[in-house]
Design a protein around this nucleic acid. Structure first.
Lengths: 193, 193
DNA sequence: TGTGACATGTAACGCGTTACATGATTTG
DNA sequence: CAAATCATGTAACGCGTTACATGTCACA
C-alpha cells in the first residue's frame, strides 16, 4: 500500500487537487509512480477520513470547484514510519520485456517496431525530465543545489528516472537493430547463397 | 494480464514445473517479472484448462510428484498475438523512491540505510546476471552469440536487467552518500560554527 | 530432532484497472 | 458544433499478496 505514501510525499510540495496529482504535472512523483484519477480521488478521500491529509474546498467560477489537500501532522508521522520500515525489493515488470523474451518463438517484426516506439517515448521523457531538473535547481549547478537545496527529494528521484529512461532508450535501440539485422540475415539466407 | 504471457515465454525454453518457475532459477524471466508460487500454480492450471500449455505428471521417488508444462500450438499463437499487440508504457514503481521523494520531510537515517542495502542487493544481482549471461552464450563472445544464437530472447532481457541493476546500485550509493553528507553538515551547523 | 528444500495448492483481502457517469467551459 | 480541459466520482472485475494447509525427504 504505497500509493497513499506516494500521495503524501507529493503533497509535501504544497497543496494539490486529485486532478492535479493525476495529471502528473507536479514534481517527480509521476516519474516513478503512476495512478489513475479514480485511484487518487479514492485515496485522498480515505486519507482525509483518517486525518492524514486535510482538504479544503476551493470555489471557482467558470470551472468546477476543486478540493486542495495538504499533509497534516498525522500524515507526516505516517510518512515517517513508512520511511523507517523495510523496503520491498523492486523489479522491472514490463510487457515489452516479456515480448523480447519470447522473440525467438514469434514474429519479430512487431516487437522491433515496439522497441523503436518505446525508444522514442523514452527519449521524449528524458527531455521532459531534463527540463524539470533545470527548473528544480534554478540558478544553481547540480552539486551546489544538492548540497544546499531545501527540497532535494524530487530532484533525486528525477535523476533516477532520467537514468532509467536513458538506459531504456539505449537498450531498445540496440535490441531493435540487432533483431532487424538478424531478420535481414535470415531473409538473405532463405533467398539464395 | 501479462503473467500468463511471461509464463508462456519462460516455457519456450523447455519443460518446467510451477515450483521451478517460481524459484526463478531458470532463464531470465525472474529478472523482469516476479510471481509467487501460488500465482504460478493457478496460472498454469488456467493455461492448461485453456489448452495453451500441456502438463504431464512426473512420478518421482524420494520426493513429491510434479507436473511439467510445455507450450502448445495454441499457446504459441497466443504469444504471437500478444507480441503483436501494442505494449503498455512501463514505469518504475518502487517504495524506496517514494521514500527518497519524501526525504526532506522525514528522518533521513533509515532511508540512507535502505539505499545502501538496496545497493548491495543490486550488486549481488549484477553478479548473478553476469554469470547467467556467460552461461547462456557458452564459448561464443557476445557479438557472435547475438548474431548466430538460436535463443537470444533471455540473453537480451538479462542485458536489460543487468543495466538496470547497475544503474540502481550507482544511484543508490550516490544518493546515500549525498544524504549522509548533508546530515553531517547539518549536525556540524547545529553544534557550533 | 529440527530446519530447509521439494512440491502443490486454497481462501481472503486489497490494490489497480476498466468502464461508466456527470456537467460546465474553453478552444478549434 | 465538436473536441479537449477542468473536476470528481461509482461500480465491477481481475490480478497480486498474504496467510494458511499438507506432506516427504535430505542433511546437520
Amino acid at each position: 500500500m504505497a500509493l497513499r505514501h506516494a500521495v503524501l510525499a507529493a503533497l509535501l510540495d504544497g497543496e494539490f487537487s486529485g486532478y492535479q496529482l493525476a495529471k502528473g504535472f507536479d514534481i517527480g512523483v509521476a516519474n516513478f509512480w503512476h495512478a489513475l484519477p479514480q485511484q487518487l480521488y479514492a485515496e485522498l478521500s480515505r486519507l482525509e477520513g483518517e486525518g492524514l491529509v486535510a482538504g479544503r474546498e476551493v470555489v471557482q467560477e467558470g470551472r468546477p470547484n476543486k478540493r486542495l489537500f495538504t499533509v497534516t501532522d498525522a500524515g507526516l508521522a505516517e510518512l515517517e514510519s513508512f520511511a523507517a520500515a523495510a523496503a520491498k525489493p523492486s523489479f522491472i515488470r514490463d510487457d515489452l520485456l516479456v515480448k523480447v523474451q519470447a522473440v525467438d518463438g514469434v514474429d519479430a517484426a512487431p516487437v522491433i517496431a515496439q522497441l523503436r516506439e518505446r525508444a522514442a517515448v523514452a527519449e521524449a521523457k528524458t527531455e521532459v525530465l531534463g527540463a524539470l531538473l533545470r527548473r528544480l535547481r534554478g540558478d544553481l549547478d547540480e552539486d551546489e543545489f544538492l548540497r544546499t537545496g531545501r527540497r532535494i527529494g524530487p530532484y533525486l528521484t528525477c535523476l533516477r528516472g532520467l537514468a532509467f529512461e536513458r538506459e531504456t532508450r539505449e537498450w531498445c535501440l540496440r535490441t531493435a537493430d540487432l533483431l532487424a539485422r538478424r531478420r535481414a540475415e535470415a531473409a538473405r539466407g532463405r533467398a539464395g547463397g
